[in-house]
Design a protein around this nucleic acid. Structure first.
Lengths: 344, 344
DNA sequence: CGTGGATATGGAATCGTTTCCATGGAAACG
DNA sequence: CGTTTCCATGGAAACGATTCCATATCCACG
């Protein structure tokens, strides 16, 4: 690693280090002559300023951190993509971290991002306000929560209002004749897990369907727990005729095991997933989903973070969700269709 | 942003900055007494060392860069995940960049990573050896290519041998009676695009199938071009009865438009995709794929990069690929089944 | 008791920038 | 022509850590 510093540039251009620095940072107090010579020297030497040193002195790093809970979740992959593009347009690089739905990894990454003195952090938080999350507040590091929030922390956020979408889904299933709807919930350690579960409970109560607590399975937002949830729910003495999965990965797990068990989605059992993933529409039957806009969420999050960095205190934003009906839930089912198969 | 520096720690602990630094970096030349006091001061102040300053002085940043061509491509999302986990285990943080299959974004991210003085870079490169890629070499920055390579550059890489998988796929289709196989190729600006196309061409020649150049459509590894490819291929006077897509996203595009056109995959037309994505098995019919191991690729890439950082010069690794037959290609087709529909 | 080696410590230089401050010269003004 | 203003410039001080070097203390040994 051969290191070329601003000293080399200054020497080649025949100016002082200070002047070279000024030219490089666009300071107007430079003559056209020295500007030209510095620029020439820079290209000749293929000089790249050392971002560490620059950040050290100027206390800005022109970078933001994005901490998602699982990169492999298409929702967060899309989010990462839009955040990264929006940040790039504003002149920031995005350092992406992956908490893997685990609190200790979240803390580790937060520590790292804090150490690297990023100018701001966008995080889909996990757990309560303990651990490194608290440091964000005490250090007054510009932070925006995305998709999820943490109770009791006064941090601007952009989230989805699950209520409308989930109510529509439940009403849609009820209208099709379903009375027992199984719910594969997200973890209660996340705000979305709690919100969506609460919305489901309210919707069920509102439509007068079965409130049997056995119809709820608590998963962890990862594929395997979707499979486990289906397995558990179908083993009930009176199994559900419709399923609602609280995120896309658990829906994937659910679909996989339903295939294996030979249950035909949309015929034997209805299925609706939270999160609209491009290829859910390609499944046969196409999957009904509760959709919310990732692009908007990412864009707004970056926007809000820039405001926070500038010292403002933006209002939190709540985006709408809405049901998109496709074939996986469109076939009306008579409440007691077929024998109630037991699985094992 | 309240800044707590090592000076504050030293002052509170009643030792010098040098001693505090020694305790923090695990230097044995410290007394148990000062160790205890420094540690206490650190927790009391919630001190996090400034990574910039540390990196500036010690010329190590304990971070690596990973530049993928598209985060939304599940293959690269998985790769990002495994690389990130492997790097974390080795004590490195991963800065993820997204080139978006665009050369100028690749260059921009490379510049950024170079500026941040990452200890090494793993990149799925795009284009030829021009632009910022060249700087990696001249600056002797530890670099490993993953998935793709760049001709003429002497950089260790871990790639997939497409030959075997593609040959198996073509032979499998030929055995099922297909004589005209359409190929939706990746861009020729990438090594995988070229390699897979060459492998396809050789396999076709080897099995004596139609070498009609019209049967090849050149896409760009993104979903839309998969749709465009299917559209173009089906409009031929003698359309193919089987399709091979060179990556998963183009396969998604292909599936989407085949659905829209009412062509039944696995019955009206066979389809095989390169890259095994978890949910491809969930499609109905399940998608036949050419599979290669992302986990291994990511793990090996990190491993190799650590070796390069340590000054070694590891051999490049080529991983195998293999055909996994599922329903999308299993139905034998008679060469001239049905009327040759035109689409528009 | 004096010398030597080991050990813990603090002072200060250093990394590559940015930025404050002082300076010199040119231009502008009366 | 003298004074003021302005502007480009260079020297040097930061930024927050690591690390070299010198020093002080202590123990052991002859």
């Amino acid at each position: 690693m051969v290191a070329i510093t601003i000293k080399d540039v200054a020497a080649l251009a025949g100016v002082s280090v200070a002047t070279a620095s000024r030219v490089l940072s666009g300071n107007p107090a430079t003559s056209p002559d020295s500007r030209a010579r510095v620029v020439a020297a820079v290209t000749e030497l293929d000089y790249r300023p050392n971002a560490q040193a620059r950040a050290l002195r100027s206390t800005r790093s022109d970078s933001i951190g994005l901490l998602v809970s699982d990169v492999r979740n298409p929702f967060f992959a899309d989010l990462a993509h839009t955040v990264e593009q929006a940040a790039l347009a504003a002149g920031y690089v995005t350092l992406l971290g992956n908490a893997n739905e685990r609190k200790e990894q979240q803390d580790r990454y937060l520590d790292t991002l804090i150490s690297r003195r990023v100018d701001g952090i966008i995080v889909a938080p996990l757990g309560d306000g303990s651990g490194s999350i608290r440091s964000l507040i005490t250090r007054e590091i510009p932070t925006v929560f995305v998709d999820r929030t943490v109770d009791g922390l006064d941090i601007p956020s952009v989230t989805t209002d699950s209520e409308a979408g989930i109510r529509q889904a439940v009403e849609h299933l009820a209208a099709a004749g379903h009375t027992r709807i199984g719910y594969i919930s997200g973890p209660q350690a996340t705000s979305t897990g709690r919100d969506r579960f609460a919305a489901f409970t309210r919707a069920i109560a509102g439509t007068g369907l079965s409130q049997d607590p056995e119809l709820v399975y608590f998963g962890d937002y990862q594929a395997a727990s979707g499979s486990a949830g289906v397995h558990a729910l179908l083993q009930l003495r009176r199994p559900p005729t419709a399923l609602l999965a609280a995120d896309s990965l658990m829906a994937v797990g659910a679909i996989a095991i339903l295939h294996k068990l030979g249950r035909r989605i949309g015929a034997d059992i209805a299925l609706i997933a939270f999160d609209d993933i491009e290829w859910f529409a390609l499944l046969n039957p196409a999957l009904s989903v509760i959709s919310h806009s990732v692009e908007e969420m990412g864009r707004i999050a970056v926007d809000m973070l820039l405001q926070v960095i500038d010292g403002a205190k933006p209002e939190s934003v709540v985006l709408p969700s809405e049901l998109i009906v496709r074939a996986s839930s469109s076939t009306p089912t008579s409440p007691a269709s077929g024998p109630s198969l037991r699985t094992n």
